[in-house]
């Protein structure tokens, strides 16, 4: 291509000048560097590339693919919400229970009044007994005294209410993802207490992979909703698309059981790590040196 253009120029220009240019072309030959310098240059280039790669890697925040970002406000609020005193387990509503108990008490009282030989004392006794009954019932039914299964059910219902598209919607992708996250949080609490429970570790792995699949579908289906849900659940886009195996490396990295080392670094990996650190240091030093040089040059320019 380049030779062609030069050839065209020669045709257009006169003979005398063309000779000149041609002689220049003949004289031109690319600068051939010695092999050693070439090698050194390539090594430096590669080092620079690796340093750049490392900086990019350090900049991206690492988010737990199971639990998401720490202190997720959505999950924390739900956990506070089930600690309220007036929530009953097994789907009962406090006001409904109160209404029923009040009605029962009134009926008993009316019966007692209509009986012959009823006194004010007997009626008061009935009221006392009914009040006691209510206290006992509420003690049985409060969510504070309920087991974990009941609490989980209430949590699920609260999550569904926030994510549903219409009333009674339990099947849309974001609802499924939210319910799965609540189950995952529950199981992870269990695993942290019982590190030997291999069955539940497997369950968590399968659940997270299922959640990934469903969220991937949601991204294809309704991208706007997808980004809202992952933001709400504390996940990132990378978390959804990454290959996730709940292996020891993951457990070590995110400290599921703090104070335990699960993966021992072998000699080769250790050397690589050291090399990486060395390279980072060198890159830093080089950058500082370049900055200093630039400053000196600036001062010289100003003085001139």
């Amino acid at each position: 291509m380049y030779s062609n253009s030069i050839y065209n120029k020669t045709v257009i220009l006169g003979n005398n000048i063309s000779k000149n240019i041609l002689s220049n072309v003949r004289n031109y030959h690319p600068v051939v560097l010695p092999k050693a310098i070439k090698k050194a240059k390539s090594i430096e280039k590669k080092k620079k590339n690796i340093a750049f790669k490392n900086t990019v890697e350090n900049k991206t925040e690492k988010v737990d693919p199971i639990l998401g970002k720490p202190n997720n406000p959505f999950i924390e609020r739900l956990k506070l919400e089930i600690q309220e005193p007036n929530i009953l387990s097994k789907g009962y509503n406090l006001n409904d229970v109160d209404r029923l108990l009040f009605g029962a008490k009134e009926v008993l009282k009316n019966k007692a009044i209509n009986l012959i030989g009823s006194t004010t004392e007997s009626i008061e006794n009935i009221e006392k007994k009914e009040n006691e009954k209510r206290e006992i019932l509420l003690r049985i039914l409060t969510l504070r005294n309920a087991d974990n299964v009941e609490k989980q059910k209430v949590l699920n219902q609260l999550a569904i209410k926030e994510f549903q598209r219409f009333d009674g919607d339990t099947g849309s992708s974001e609802v499924q993802a939210a319910v799965m996250t609540i189950e995952i949080y529950n199981l992870m609490d269990h695993i942290k207490k019982n590190p030997q429970d291999k069955v539940h570790i497997r369950k968590v792995r399968m659940l997270t992979q299922k959640r990934q699949r469903i969220l991937r579908y949601l991204k294809r289906d309704q991208p706007q909703k997808y980004f809202w849900t992952i933001e709400k659940l504390g996940l990132t886009d990378d978390n959804v698309h990454m290959e996730f195996n709940m292996d020891r490396k993951y457990m070590d990295e995110f400290e599921i059981w703090p104070g335990r080392t699960l993966v021992n670094i072998n000699k080769k990996e250790n050397e690589e790590l050291k090399k990486k650190r060395r390279m980072e240091k060198q890159a830093l030093r080089r950058a500082l040196h370049e900055k200093l040089l630039a400053k000196e040059q600036q001062i010289e320019n100003e003085s001139q």
Partner: peptide, 14 residues
């Protein structure tokens, strides 16, 4: 480009 805008919107909305 759409995904990026959605992501930014979602962060503020949430």
């Amino acid at each position: 480009q759409q995904f990026l805008t959605y992501q930014k919107e979602a962060k503020i909305n949430v």
